[in-house]
Every structure is written in structure tokens, then in C-alpha cells.
Design a protein around this nucleic acid. Sequence first.
DNA 1: ACGAGCTAATAGCACGTGCTAGCACAAAGG
DNA 2: CCTTTGTGCTAGCACGTGCTATTAGCTCGT
Lengths: 347, 347
Amino acid sequence: MSRPDSDAPQDVTAKGVQRGRGPTMGDVAKAAGVSRPLVSIVMREAPGASIATRERVLRIANEMGYVPDERARKLRQNSSRLIGIAFELQQPFHGDVVEQIYLAAAESGYDVALSAVAPTRDEPTAVESLIRERCEALIVLGMKAQADDLQRIAERVPVVSVARRLKAPALGIVRGDDKAGLRMAVEHLASLGHQRIAHIDGADAPGSADRRASYRKTMQRLGLGDNIDVITGGLTEADGARGMSELLTRPVPPTAVIAFNDRCATGALDVAARTGLRVPANLSIMGYDDSRLARVPHVQMTTVSQDARELARAAVDLALEQIHGQAPREIIVQPRLVVRETTQRPG
Amino acid sequence: MSRPDSDAPQDVTAKGVQRGRGPTMGDVAKAAGVSRPLVSIVMREAPGASIATRERVLRIANEMGYVPDERARKLRQNSSRLIGIAFELQQPFHGDVVEQIYLAAAESGYDVALSAVAPTRDEPTAVESLIRERCEALIVLGMKAQADDLQRIAERVPVVSVARRLKAPALGIVRGDDKAGLRMAVEHLASLGHQRIAHIDGADAPGSADRRASYRKTMQRLGLGDNIDVITGGLTEADGARGMSELLTRPVPPTAVIAFNDRCATGALDVAARTGLRVPANLSIMGYDDSRLARVPHVQMTTVSQDARELARAAVDLALEQIHGQAPREIIVQPRLVVRETTQRPG
DNA sequence: ACGAGCTAATAGCACGTGCTAGCACAAAGG
DNA sequence: CCTTTGTGCTAGCACGTGCTATTAGCTCGT
């Protein structure tokens, strides 16, 4: 039974009772006829309130449209339980990883703050804004910044770098195993019966050297050393298209091609299609990353998965480790072969 | 594997004098030998401090690595000057708009809070987290939620919906002019000399009806009424591929095709290439949206631009209007024709 | 019957910052 | 000499919440 409600809207006081939006915890307490801390107890589901009171407070809070103020909450509990992510808006793969980080962080009771990197918004801006929000750790995806820049930031807050090769002992590092990835690709094609397997590489891109070396080594090991064929490619569709065009001028063209990444493979795919080659009947093509590009319905590209879920989980684990004072370390995530429809036995 | 950490106590001192990370305003004040409020004055560049003191405080703050706590700042000044954005991680076009919103908001002195929508993170979750951070307004991109859900949210905080057709008087709405867009597309192709111009539509997607009607009307107006050819398509590459395959079975196939969007056009492009048709020599193809897909180097698709910059600016304008108490309204942004390399005079 | 033990609820401080009011002091005017 | 004005700085409260310490209300064991 609530009393004849003294709920008069008296915003006469000079104090800030005049809020257009957002009732406060005190307002709910007054309306429910209890003390403010009790409302706090109910809202964060802490022990110390009876079930009846709990339900009543929750009902009233809901009626008033009360929502706890996250800033005040984070301010009070000295640990913000916040992990900051700097990511690139235009990288589909980053989107995958961010999504998984949300999940992994939530499991550990952490919240996530996003800060975008884009052509008109550089990394220092993004990182700075995350520090201002007092994130306990930063996860940076594919950061283009120099290693020493990140090192300087790491002096103030734990930093984990994902999917980017760099030497920086003060940073947590998560990356895929490039050597294993290309080994799996070659072995997959070889097991289908391919012998003339070419590689359009990533030029001087990070990881390209490892993948190139692994390609050569695996070809040798499988007794295909004489068929080693490495073409300089790059990160983009245009690079892949150029590489594919060059491969098609060979006296005896390859029956299978491993591109540096999915974008590069898409370019190669396009040139093959325009030349009248059927994929995979006449030519098998593989990508790398398992980005959305590879999963497009009418493409269905066979590729090597970097497994966003594992990368994200490893990144969050490293972040938590460093928050708890452990030294930064490196985690190498094993890639996974994803067989779709652009590879087949050679015709 | 990961333990739900039992949170080891690492902070020994009861007072927050010794925190591993993050010196406070008081620490800076003590180090500089001034009062705390004076540091506040210096940090926000308010009048009331001599130039000499200002420089000294700034220098010391910098040496200590002091960064103002955004949460405390936003908490104190009752207006958070924060605009929340709910966007989809996997939509390239959303990325473009978000980037531009950053810029537009900054011009008005507003900060931006990002909240992602993804398969494992639904819209209510994303929106709720933004409200908890006390954003003064919300901008939702391509929200799939029902109009009445958004209406309910709009009772608590101003909401602007972007690039999504819906009837909701309580919401600010920003969208492109679909009719004008398709008119421009048809006129472009007609001016090149095309007569048999087909349209792969978006089925029951939002905006599809308007575009379809505009296509018919414009064809009529240009005296091409007899060549009207609408195929049911959809939003994805597969839909475009299916539509294109169907068009190629026509006794007299079209010389130009307008797809519902860039993804749909990409599917059509792919089928054309596999069939041996040269684009644009034998067939012109147009997309819609001017997403990154259309700008891919080896594609270079002619398309209709939704102009992320204008959409973003309009959205921020509407948000600010509603924050200042004005009634929500609708802004229709005129699209722009982007001629690239998939259209040409009919051969 | 009476204190021990437990639950429900309250009082009060703290987090880091912004803002208003006020204090000390030097220069100018009487 | 005292009063007035302006400058440079400081004291103190407030924002909305979480946490610790404390008290009223109740059951229970002896």
C-alpha cells in the first residue's frame, strides 16, 4: 500500500531536480519509500534485500523508466571493468573479431568500449579516447602504428595487439600461425591430386615472408619442389588479378593457386572467370582469412580460417592476464582449413 | 579454461594514493604546488589562470602522464554531450556513415559512443548499453527492430533512424530518395543509348517498391515502356546471380541492368562474367549504395551514391534538434550518380 | 526470558571532476 | 590614509553510484 502519494512534481528547488530525462536512484528510492542504498542493492542484485521489497523496487524502477547511470557506476567501483577496442571500420574481419570480443569479455564480467579507426580518424585519436574512458586494457586490431608508439602507450595501460606482426616485448600479441596455415593449404591441394600449385604472395606485407617460406618448404617436402611458382602479389583484388594474369601466360599454367588473402583470391577468381576458366573444374583457387568475402554465397571460397573466435578469446585472455599484473606474452593461434567450393580434384 | 577471477587484492593502501595506473587531478595539483580546481581550470582551458602557471601545470601533467577521466567529467557536467550510435559491424556502408558521424558530431562539440549490432548481439542490447551511458540522443543505422520498439525507446531519449524506411512520428528519420535514385540510373543508361534496360529489384526489401515504381515511370516517360522488365531479386549476391541468369534466358536479353544494390549487382556481374559476357562492352550493369563493394579496384562499378557524408550530417542535425526540444522530422537526402566503369554505350 | 545470531534496511563516505562563492593582494582613485 | 576594482587562486559542494559500518526487527537456543 503506498500512501497518498506525496509525489508532487516539485521542481521548484534551485537544485537540478529539473531533468528532462533520466530519473536517479534517489528518485526511485523516494517513490518506493525506501533508502537509496537499498535501491542500489536491488539494482545490482546484491544480497541484503527481501524478495518482496526487491520486486516492488524493480517494478517501480521500471515504471519510472529508471536506468542505472553507467558512468557513475564505473566511477565508483575503482576498477572500470572496461576493455577498449581500437578497430578499423572498413575491415570485415575486424568486425568478426569485435563481435567475438564482446562475447569473451562478457564471460569475464567485462564491458567493451569501441573506438573506430578510419581514414579521417587516426589511431592516436582512437586510443586516446579509450584511455580517457579509463579502460583497464586496450585491444588494438591490425594497428598500423609503429611498434614504439604502442610501446609508449603500453607504459600507461596494458595493450594487446591482434593480427599484426610486430616485435614489442611490452605488448601482448595474438596472431595466427602463418606457416601452419600455408602448410595446410598446400597439403589440402596436394591431397586432392594437384601438383602444379602456384602461390600469389603478399609482397612485403606482414606475414608474407613466413607464408612464402612455408609454401616452398611444404612443396619440397611433398616432392613438388620442381613445381614451386611464387608470384609477387599483394593485399588487394588488383594485386590478385595481376598475379593471375601473369600465371596464365605460363607455358604450362598451374592447376591450383593459393592467394595471399581472400581479397587477393577474389581478384584471381575474377580474372579466371573472365578468361573462361571454370572454377573449380579447370582451376582451384584458395584464399586466406575466411573473411566475409570468402563466405559470399555465390563465391564459397575454400580458404584458411584465422578463426575470429579464437583470436578474440586469446586477446581477452591476454588482456585479463596483464590487468592482473602478469607479464605480456605472445599467443599463436592455429588456423583451420575451411573447404568450400573453389577447390576440387584437377580435371 | 579461463577462471572467473576471484579478483586478487593488489591495492594495499586504503587511500587511492598509490594506484598502478592513472594519476588524478589532485596528484597533479600536489606535484605542481597548486590547488586541485586550478588544475581543472588549466585542463579545460577556462579563464582564471596566469599563462606561467598554465604552462607549468600542463608540463607537469604531461610528465606524470595525466589524462582527465572522461567518466567523472561527463558525470559532473549534467549534459553528457554524447551521441550514441547503434550500427552493424558487417555493413560496409554503416562504417562509412559512422566515420562521417564522428566528424559531424565533433564539429558540434559532441562525442560519440559506439555500440555494435551483430548476430550474437541484438539491437535491444546495443541500445540499452547506450542509454546506460546517458547518451543525449541515439542514431540507429538500418535497425531491423519494429517501429513501435523504437517508438518506446524514443519516449526516453531522442532517436534518429538512418537508411531505413519506417513510419514512426516520434522518430527523426533520414533516408535517401529512392525514387530520384532510380530515375537517375535509368536516365544515365538511356542517355548512353540503351533501350532494353532491365531491373533486378529488391523483392519486399524496404525501398524496393519505390525504386520499382520509379523505374517503371521513368521508362514510360522516356518512351521505353515496351521494354520494361522487372525481375524479382533481393539484397544478396545470390539474388543478383539468380536474377541475371533469368534475364539471360530472354529471347532478346537486355543491354543494361539496374540491380537493387551493389551486392546484388556483384552477383549479376559474376554471372555475366562466367557466361562470357564482357562488362561493359556487351552489357552495362549498375548497382546502388556506392558501398565499398562498388569501389573495389577491379570492379569499379557505376552506382547510385547514398552519400554517407550527407546522411551522417543530416542525422546529427536531427539529433541536435531533438536534444534542443524540437519535434522530430524527416530528412530525405538526394542521391548522386557515380559513373565508373561498368556502364558504356551499347555495343 | 534474555542475549546470540541472522536478516533487512539505513547512514555516510568515497570516486574524480566542474562550478559557484569567496579570499588575498596589487594597482588605481578619493 | 582608506576604499574600490580586478586578477589569481582556493574552499566546498554537487553529480549518481558502490561499499563499509551500523542499527532495528526477528527467530532461536538454553
